[in-house]
Structures are given as C-alpha cells and as structure tokens.
C-alpha cells in the first residue's frame, strides 16, 4: 500500500464522514454521533499515515523532503488541517452538527486533489529556493490558519441558515446550535486563524529574508496574504469596538474564506510572482 492509495481512500472516508454528520442532523439520531466521530478520527489517522508515508517514500526515492511543497500536497494538508481543527472544535464545544458543514470542505479538498487533472501528484524533488527548514514552519502555520478560517466560514453558513429559517427552533434549523453559541465559535475560530495567519506571514518573511535577502517584496502572494490579514483585522475591530456580531460577522466569515482561497489558489493561477511553486 502506498501513500497515494491511502490518500485516495481518505477522499472517500471523508465523504462518508460528511454523510454521517448530515445523517445525524437529518435523522436526529444521537447514536450516530459517536459513530461519525470515531469514523472521522480513523479517517484522519489514515490520512496522517498517508502523509507520513509520502514523506517516507520521498526518502526512498532519495529526495527526502516534507510532503508540503506543491499544490497537491498543500490541498491534502489543508483537508488534514480542516479535519483535525474540526475535531478539536467538536471536542471543545460538544457540538456535532458543525461536522455536517465542515467535513464536506475536507472532502471537496481531497476530491480536488485526487481528481483534478491540473495538478500533479508526483513526488518531485525541491528546487533550491524551497530547500529550507522554514518551509515546514511556513506551510504548517499558514494552513492551520486557513483551516480555522474554513471552519469559521462553515459556521457562518450554519448561522445564516438558522437565522434565515422562519422558526429557528424547529425543523432542520432547530437542530443547529443556538445562534449565540455559533456566533461565539465563529469569533473564536477567526481569532485562532488570525494568530496562525500572522505566524504564517512572519515565517514566510523570515524565509524570504534568508533566501532572497528581503523580508518583504510586495510579491502578489505576499500582498494578498497581507490583504487577508487586513480583512480579518477589520472584522475583529468591527466586532470589538463597533459591536458587530451575528449575521454581519457570519457573512464576513464567508467572505474571509473567499479572500483566503484567492490568496491560496487564485494568486497562483491568475497573478504572476515569485511564489509560483504552489501552482504545479
């Protein structure tokens, strides 16, 4: 069994996880809750082994590098981070219905990684610019942040759905967590993501300085990461000092993910710059 098989399996186990969480919501079957969680944990462990195996395989090929260096690997890691972050949220806030919104994100990411013809799945060696210990620190910090923003957006969708329902206390909307709780978790995940995004930008700057002699060069990727940072900074200020909450913050959490995805994905394909490694 090699890493690509394991990661392929993960695509389907995340789909099943997503369906299980949706089933809890639809059929109101609390017994399914444990099954969904256990299954997701196992799926996540399989993915972890898959990522680890890919690392090992790179050593067997004589390349020896962390599995975090191209679009395929970053999308896989994005899904991995979403799931572990979701599991942490579920454990901390004891709310399983979030899974019905979070797991599909992980599934879509894995499906894109597995089935897209645009991105290569091969383990290729690293060009000199990427041969740095900062690579792992930079990618890991960024993607923990991105995962948190993805969960925040999923929660934002839940908030808006519940808020839009005629009667938030009955039907499907009634099975979603209270609006106040959703609002609280959105805020907390956004803060968490903001700190990791800050760390991601900082580690990137330190890396750029050790590779090119300049910690900031207004490269499109850098600039967009700063725009993302500004976006969440504005959102947090609007909440703290202008009392924004509820639907407004929920909408901002979804817009925020759009900005994140543009920084992560759009920049590589639509704009040119130094940071072109991720696009192949």
């Amino acid at each position: 069994m090699d890493s690509s098989q394991l990661l392929g399996i993960t695509t389907f186990t995340y789909l099943l996880s997503a369906l299980l969480y949706v089933a809890i919501l639809v059929f109101q079957n609390p017994g399914l809750g444990r099954v969904a969680t256990a299954f997701t944990v196992i799926a996540w462990l399989v993915q972890t082994v898959g990522i680890g195996l890919r690392w090992l395989e790179s050593y067997q090929m004589g390349i020896g590098r962390a599995p975090l260096t191209n679009m395929y690997e970053s999308v896989v890691f994005f899904a991995w981070a979403i799931v572990i972050f979701y599991l942490a949220v579920e454990w901390k806030f004891k709310v399983k219905s979030i899974g019905a919104f979070a797991l599909p994100l992980a599934f879509f990411a894995m499906a894109y990684a597995s089935f897209s013809t645009e991105i290569s799945k091969g383990i290729t060696p690293l060009i000199p610019a990427l041969q740095s210990n900062w690579l792992i620190a930079h990618v890991v910090t960024c993607f923990i942040g991105y995962a948190a923003f993805a969960i925040a957006a999923a929660l934002g969708c839940m908030y808006l759905l519940k808020n839009a329902a005629d009667n938030g206390n009955s039907g499907l909307a009634g099975r979603l967590p209270e609006l106040a709780l959703l609002d609280d978790i959105i805020h907390k995940t956004m803060i968490f993501g903001f700190i990791w995004l800050s760390a991601g930008i900082i580690t990137g700057a330190i890396w750029a300085n050790s590779a090119w002699g300049t910690y900031w060069s207004w490269d499109p990727k850098e600039t967009w990461s700063l725009i993302t940072w500004f976006f969440y900074a504005i959102t947090l200020h609007a909440r703290y000092t202008r009392g924004w909450s509820g639907p407004r913050i929920a909408i901002l959490s979804i817009c925020g993910l759009a900005v994140v995805l543009f920084t992560y994905y759009g920049v590589n394909f639509l704009l040119s710059g130094l940071h072109s490694y991720g696009s192949s």
């Binding site: 207004w218 499109p220 600039t223 967009w224 700063l226 725009i227 500004f230 976006f231 900074a233 504005i234 200020h237 609007a238 000092t241 202008r242 920049v267 704009l271 040119s272 710059g273």
Partner: peptide, 22 residues
C-alpha cells in the same frame, strides 16, 4: 476605530492594484 477600519480597508483595496498591474 472608524478611521482604523477605513485605513485598513483603503490599504487592502489599493494593495490589489499592485498585484494586478506588474
């Protein structure tokens, strides 16, 4: 804080220009 939000917003929007125009 209104000014802070305005400035951050203005910086975000204008920063986009330089990512689109080489």
């Amino acid at each position: 804080v209104k000014l802070a939000i305005f400035t951050l917003f203005a910086l975000s929007i204008t920063a986009i220009i330089g990512t689109v125009i080489p």
